[in-house]
Nucleic acid binder design. Sequence first.
DNA 1: TATACATTTGTGTGCCCACACATTTTAATG
DNA 2: CATTAAAATGTGTGGGCACACAAATGTATA
Lengths: 355, 355
Amino acid sequence: MSNRKKTTIQDIANYANVSVGTIDRVIHNRGKVSPLKKKKIEEAIKLLDFNPNLLARTLALGKQFRVCSLFPEAKNSGNYWNLPKKGIEQVANTYRDFGIVLDSHEYSLFDESSFVAHAQVIADKNPDGVILAPLFEKESKVFVEILEEKNIPYIFIDAKIPDKKPLSYIGPDSKRSGFIAGKLLHSLLREKDDILIVNMAKGVKNSAHIGIVEEGFRDFFESQDDNVDWNINSLTIPSTEEVDVIKELTKYYIKNTVVKGVFVTNSRAHLISEFHKTHELDIKLVGFDLVEKNITEMKSGGIDFLISQSPVFQGTRAVQSLFDYFVYKKPPAEIQFVPLDIIIKENIDFYLNSQ
Amino acid sequence: MSNRKKTTIQDIANYANVSVGTIDRVIHNRGKVSPLKKKKIEEAIKLLDFNPNLLARTLALGKQFRVCSLFPEAKNSGNYWNLPKKGIEQVANTYRDFGIVLDSHEYSLFDESSFVAHAQVIADKNPDGVILAPLFEKESKVFVEILEEKNIPYIFIDAKIPDKKPLSYIGPDSKRSGFIAGKLLHSLLREKDDILIVNMAKGVKNSAHIGIVEEGFRDFFESQDDNVDWNINSLTIPSTEEVDVIKELTKYYIKNTVVKGVFVTNSRAHLISEFHKTHELDIKLVGFDLVEKNITEMKSGGIDFLISQSPVFQGTRAVQSLFDYFVYKKPPAEIQFVPLDIIIKENIDFYLNSQ
DNA sequence: TATACATTTGTGTGCCCACACATTTTAATG
DNA sequence: CATTAAAATGTGTGGGCACACAAATGTATA
C-alpha cells in the first residue's frame, strides 16, 4: 500500500479517460465539465486516493505570501520578545521555498506613536497576513480594523483585544495562568501568610489581561476549602523602571512587614527578587517568563517558580497557522492556548536548551 | 531585498556564462568541470546567494525515504505509546510529499519474541531510517547492530542503550527526571516523613533507566542541606499486573505504616492511587506520564504531580530529525533531551489539548 | 595531419501541477 | 443542413532542479 507511488493527476486522467486539463477543472471547481465526466473523475479521485502534490502545486503557482509581524522591539538578547520572534523566523525560514516571506516590524513599548507608524507601513504594504502582539490596546484596535477592511487576516500573539476576532489568538489563558500561580505560591506558604500581588504596567497597555491574571490568582485561594482567610493585597506600580519599583516596594514593605509571598503578574519578577536580596528578605516569589534576568534570579534562589508561556512556540504556531491557511486553505482554531510550563531551578535548563 | 525573486540555477548559469548542466555538476560535486569555471560558478553562487529550491529538488529526485518505527503496541486509546506515535504520524504526514513513507511496527511489551520478529522484518526491508523505542535492551542491541552493519541510521526514542550510538537519542534525561520528582515530592512533605519509591518492571526491560531515575531522586534529597535524614525505601515489583501490585503494596504498607509520600518511576502511578483511595490513605503521590488513568487519578486528587516527558514531541522530533538528515543532509544532535513538564490538576487540561 | 581518445560542456526530458490557449464537440438558430 | 455560438475537452508551457545523454572541445599518438 505505502509501497505504491502516489497517484498523480495523470493517473486520474487515465482512469477517467480524459485529459489532465479536465481533471484540473474539477479539482479547482472551474466548471466547464460535463456532469457525467465530473462524476467519474470525482469517483476516481476518491478511489485512487488522489492528493495533489503540494510541492508541485506550490512550484507551479509561484505565489508569494508576505507575512508582516509587529512586535515590541527586543534590543538586548535577554529580552522576552526575542523568543516568539525566534519561533517566527525559524518556521518562516523552513517554509521559505513555499513562498513565505517574512517582514518583521518592531515598535517601542514606550512609544505608542512608533506602533502607529509601523502599523501604517504594514497596512500600506497589503501583506497576505499579519502577526501582531497587541500590547497597545487602543492603537491595535484601530490597526486591525484597517486590516479587516482590507480583508487581511491577522493573528494575535501573547495578548488579545476584547471584541476583536483575529484569525487566531495564540497565547496563554490569562485566568488559568493566574490560577496556577496561586497554586504554586500556595504550596510554598503556611496558613495566614500575607500575600502580595505586584502589577507593573506602563500606561494603559494590556490592562485587561493583568486584571484577569489577578482574578485567576485570587480564584485559586478562594477555591481552597482550607478555612483560611488569606490576606491578599495588590500593589500596582505604573512603571517598570527600577527606581520607581524600588520606591513603591519600599513604601509598601515598610507598612506591611509580614508579607511572605509575592506574585508578579508580568516578566519583571527579577526586580522584586533583587530587592529582596538587597534587603535580606526571605519572601517566596512567583513570576512569569524565562527572561534572562529571571533565569539568573531563579538560579540564585531568589525566584521560586516561573511560569513560562511557551514563547517560542507562540511564534512557531503563528507562522504555522498562516502557512496552513495560505497553502492548505485550512483555517486555524480561533483560540490556541499555549502550554504553561512550570519552571523551577531544577528543570530550567531544559527549557533554556529547547528554546 | 526580500522583494527579489529567489536566484535559480539559470541565474547562476547566466552569470558564469555556462549552461545549467555545469552548475549542476559543481553543486553536486560531480567533477568534470574545468577549475576556472568551477571557481567562477562558486563565486556566483555566493554572490547571488543561491540556494537550491527544495521543492523543485525533491520533485526532481522523486526519492522515497522509508522510515520504519518499532514501538510497544498501544491497543487502547489511553496507552502512552499512542502519543509518540501520534507525533510521528503527524510529521510523517506533513512530509508525505517529500517522499517520507512511514512504516509502523509494534511489539508486545510482554513478549520479547514479537520484538525480535518485527525487528527482523524491518531489517529485511532495508529502510532508510529506523525509529526505535528500545525497551528490550538485549534484543534491541542485537537489532541495532544489524542496522549498523547495513548502514541504516536509527534513532532511539524514550530510552537508550549503553554503548550504542544512534543517530540521535530523543528522550528524557533520566537522572534529572528523578531529581525533579524528588523536588516535587519534597515540596509536599514535612521533615522526616517516610518516602517510598515504587519500581514496577516486567523482566529485564529498561532496568538501567529505572536505576538512574531512582538515583536522581535520591540525589535531590541528599542535595538538601536541611539536616534531615530522609527515610527513603524502594520497592521493586516485578510485574505491572494490578493483582501483583496490590499484593506487594499491601505487604509493604502493613509493615511500614508511616509512609507519607510515594514516587512511582514509571507511568503506573494510577495503580498506587487507586490503592490509596481504596484504603483511604492520605499519601502524596508523584509519577510519570499523562496516560488516561493517571489523568483520571490526578483530576480526582489521588496523584499530586505528574512529570510528562513530552511524548508527542519525542515523536515529532524523531521524524523531523530524520527528515532533516535525509533532505537537508543535516545530522541531528546526538542527544536531544526533551522538556520535562510538571503537571498538576490545575494545568493538566492544557497538556491534554495540545497533545 | 588524421585518428583515437579523454575531458569538458550543453541539451533534453521528466518530476507534478496550474493555467492559458487551441481544438473539438454539442446545441441552437435561421 | 449550413452557420454560429457555446460548452466541453485537449495541448503546451513554465515553475526549478536532477540526470542521462549528446555534442563540442582538448590532448596525445602514430
